[in-house]
Design a binder for these strands. Structure first.
Length: 161
DNA sequence: GCCAACGTTGGC
DNA sequence: GCCAACGTTGGC
């Protein structure tokens, strides 16, 4: 049985920079923070079931001027329960998630690098090979999305290597 | 601030 | 299990 050692998957994760930007991640101890507050089942399933340490992450700034990809991070650890769902005073509280049977999960994410320039959404929409990227589809709100190997390579190329 | 698109909830 | 109402996302 062939093992899938060495396979590395790629993701795009959205964050509002006025809430948590790529610079905020870079400023965390060791550049690592937990990606809490995801309350969407599809996004949760990607984090809980598919992400592996070492996977690459495009850090996307949403609700920004302009919105776009700000840099690269990587998955730093496997998913574990999102404890912010258990805090009745927190904004991510979900009474339907309890510690004995957590509904929501999160991963740790490590800063890798900020791009020399933000790659705006408008530009992504014009790049051959990125037509299928979920983030450029109208109405696509999913905050954690898979990115293909080809899309990853193209985006890093746009960023200047 | 507007509002289209979407996901979730809950009545039936 | 349908689907209308509602809340949220996120570009503009």
């Amino acid at each position: 049985m062939a093992e899938e050692i060495g396979t590395r998957r790629y993701w795009l994760m959205k964050s509002e920079p006025n809430v948590f930007s790529i610079d905020d991640l870079a400023a965390c101890p060791d550049g690592i923070d937990h990606w809490d507050g995801v309350r969407n089942y599809q996004a949760r399933n990607f984090m809980r079931d598919e992400m592996k340490p070492g996977d690459g992450v495009l850090f996307y700034h949403s609700n920004a001027t302009p919105p776009g990809i700000a840099g690269v991070a990587e998955i730093a650890g496997a998913a574990y329960p999102d404890h912010t769902a258990f805090d009745p005073h927190g904004k991510y509280y979900d009474p339907k998630s309890d510690p004995g049977n957590p509904r929501w999960f999160m991963v740790d994410v490590r800063f890798v690098r900020r791009f020399p320039r933000l790659i705006p959404l408008d530009e992504l929409k014009t790049v051959p090979g990125l037509e299928g990227m979920k983030v450029i589809q109208k109405g696509q709100r999913l905050s954690v999305q898979p990115v293909s190997d080809q899309e990853w390579d193209i985006v890093l190329g746009l960023a200047g290597g």
